[in-house]
Simulated assay, not measured.
Amino acid sequence: MQELSQPRRMLMPTTKRPDPVAPALILTPQDRGQALKAWLKRKDIPVSDFAAAIGIGRATLNRYIAGTKDLATAEQSIADRLLQAMGISDGEAWTLLSIPEDNRRTFRSFRPPPLGHGTVTRTLSDIRLEEPLFGSVALPAGTLIRVSHEGPALEHSVVRLPDGRLYAASAGVIAEGEQLGYLVSAHFAIRLTDAEPLQDQ
């Protein structure tokens, strides 16, 4: 009795994905993400390893790479760790990722010069609000807030709640979450196009 031969599985040739290429001109968060992706590929650094070095989840790093989150507006603490993990100077990273001038106050590291900007500003952090701040102080998304990590307790502290939102707690109020510091100042621009048109009397 002859055994029936099993049909042979066909092995399909695999096509290698082309290596990511940094955009020639970086204008958008997506371009910035592609530039970082190309840099990681050139350095042969896996995304998961880089995310671990920064101390953020791979999903969060993927959002930066995809451009759904803009690297230029990353919190100062994340930018500091990212720059340290890259091992290049703040200035080189600004050029590589085309970080706008307005964002360089927060997209910098605390490493000593010439790599970073030193520890003079370590007690202060600037945070660009991606969502409105609520609580004892209400501020719209897009506002740049400055928080202090040291010194005397001020009237309002800023807390990152477990759901990721930022909450301003007045003195004496305890909010569960990550204490980011005491609110020092807020800077935001009012776009005239959003304002009510002036009426002639």
Rank of each mutant, 00 (worst) to 15 (best):
T14L: 08
I56G: 02
K16L: 15
L124V: 11
S48P: 03
P162T: 11
E155T: 14
W39D: 11
D19S: 11
V147G: 00
S125N: 06
H149C: 03
G181T: 05
D163Q: 10
S89H: 03
W94Y: 07
L71F: 05
Q2P: 11
E75R: 14
A24F: 04
R8G: 13
G67Y: 07
I26T: 12
N103R: 09
D126W: 04
Q201M: 05
Q34A: 10
V184R: 07
L129C: 04
M12W: 10
L83Y: 00
T143C: 12
S89F: 04
E130R: 09
P18E: 12
A52D: 10
P132T: 12
A52I: 06
A175G: 04
H187R: 14
T123F: 10
Q76M: 14
L97W: 01
Q30Y: 13
R9E: 11
I88Q: 09
V137W: 02
D194Q: 07
R111W: 04
D200C: 10
G177C: 06
D31K: 11
L36F: 01
I56C: 14
L115A: 03
L4I: 12
R128S: 05
P162S: 14
Q2N: 12
A35N: 01
T28E: 08
M10Q: 15
A93H: 05
D102E: 07
R165E: 03
P140E: 13
A74H: 05
A52H: 05
I190Q: 07
P197K: 13
G57C: 06
G142D: 13
I45P: 00
G33I: 04
L161F: 09
E176Q: 10
G142P: 04
I78W: 02
W39P: 01
N103P: 00
M10W: 08
L11F: 15
I54L: 10
L192F: 02
G33K: 05
D70P: 01
I190Y: 07
T143H: 09
V120K: 14
L61E: 03
K43L: 15
R191T: 08
A35H: 00
P197S: 13
G33Y: 00
F110W: 13
V21G: 01
L25G: 04
G116L: 01
I145V: 13
E130Q: 09
R32F: 10
G33H: 05
I127G: 00
L198Q: 13
I88W: 04
T123V: 14
R146F: 00
L115E: 02
M1Q: 13
L198K: 09
D102F: 02
R146T: 06
E92Q: 14
I45R: 07
A186W: 08
A141C: 12
L198W: 06
A52C: 08
R108G: 02
M1K: 09
L192G: 05
Q201T: 09
S109P: 05
R128C: 05
T121L: 15
S185H: 10
D49P: 00
V158H: 02
D31T: 14
P23M: 07
R160P: 04
E101Q: 14
T121A: 10
L166T: 01
V184M: 11
S89M: 09
D80E: 09
V147I: 12
R105M: 13
P7L: 15
T15R: 13
Q84E: 04
I45H: 11
L183K: 04
T28P: 06
I174V: 12
R165Y: 06
I190K: 07
Q201Y: 09
N62M: 05
Q34E: 09
R8Q: 15
G33N: 06
Y167N: 00
A35Y: 00
A85W: 00
